[in-house]
Design a binder for these strands. Structure first.
Length: 143
DNA sequence: TCAGTGACTCCCC
DNA sequence: CGGGGAGCCACTG
């Protein structure tokens, strides 16, 4: 769905972001397994726009902290929680710890333990360019 | 249209 | 490790 077709939706319907990029973000986040994480930048990359990390945050923010989406599994590139500034940091931390994720004293988690990356099949489904996918996964450590 | 806005990142000190 | 600053870019009013 794009912004032009979205305009046809009756005003009464409080729609979530459903434009292309946002929709891709939601599909991806929905697939992150319990106890695993992805950074905003990684989600953006899989969604097809490598440098749109800020938009990923925007999409998740738009969904809300009580969304069915496992938004807590998306963290920043430092391995830390970014939602403290919008008041959901503690909630996110608790949700992640409940999934078995541990944070060090700096509030960072260990990517070696918790980093997730989609299977090739899933990547194909997301239509991520295979070369880009390979370079990114290698960079992440998923050789 | 177009400037403004970030749940971001990277780089530098 | 931490803070500041400059890019980034889809989406919005």
């Amino acid at each position: 769905m794009n912004s032009s077709s979205a305009g046809k939706i009756p005003q009464k319907i409080r729609r979530k972001q459903t434009t292309g990029f946002a929709e891709a973000v939601l599909q991806i986040v929905k697939k992150i397994p319990k106890g695993k994480v992805l950074t905003y930048g990684q989600v953006a990359t899989i969604a097809g726009v490598p440098r749109a990390a800020r938009m990923v945050g925007g999409v998740l923010h738009h969904q809300g902290a009580w969304s069915r989406l496992p938004w807590q599994r998306v963290i920043n590139a430092k391995g830390g929680i970014s939602t403290y500034r919008v008041g959901f940091g503690e909630k996110q931390k608790v949700l992640l710890e409940r999934e078995g994720i541990q944070f060090n004293r700096e509030g960072h988690l260990d990517f070696k333990k918790y980093q997730w990356w989609p299977s090739d099949k899933l990547l194909k489904q997301f239509e991520l360019d295979s070369d880009l996918a390979q370079s990114i996964s290698r960079r992440i450590g998923f050789r």
